[in-house]
């Protein structure tokens, strides 16, 4: 919250602070997509609790594929759990 001048009731008009907080640094495990196996079905996108997955066009493939925003992905691996094609695996993040 801005400390200098509070608005009534702590209303925040300087919105977007969540975007500044790059939660990707919290990660222990990093989900990795095998683009060969990925069919772009979109199940991972629906399950991702952080909204970090989008199914979109990637280089070298005709069909859209799973892409992960590593700036915010916390590494919960729900995507890996839910992928019906076992296209997502995990590696330990090197920090």
């Amino acid at each position: 919250m801005p400390k200098t001048k509070d608005l009534p009731g702590g209303i925040i008009i300087d919105v977007g602070s969540t975007a500044r907080n790059k939660t990707g640094s919290w990660r222990t495990f990093r989900p990795v997509v095998d683009l060969e196996k990925c069919t772009g079905c979109g199940i991972c996108e629906k399950f991702c609790p952080e909204g970090c997955i989008t199914i979109k066009k990637v280089k070298g493939y005709d069909k859209p594929k799973c892409t992960i925003d590593y700036d915010y992905c916390k590494g919960c691996l729900i995507c890996m759990e839910e992928c019906p094609f076992k296209a997502i695996s995990s590696v330990v993040e090197s920090k």
Binding site: M1, G10, I11, I12, I13, V15
Partner: peptide
Amino acid sequence: KKPLTMGPLG
């Protein structure tokens, strides 16, 4: 059009 946050965590 002018997003803001009400009732944030204090």
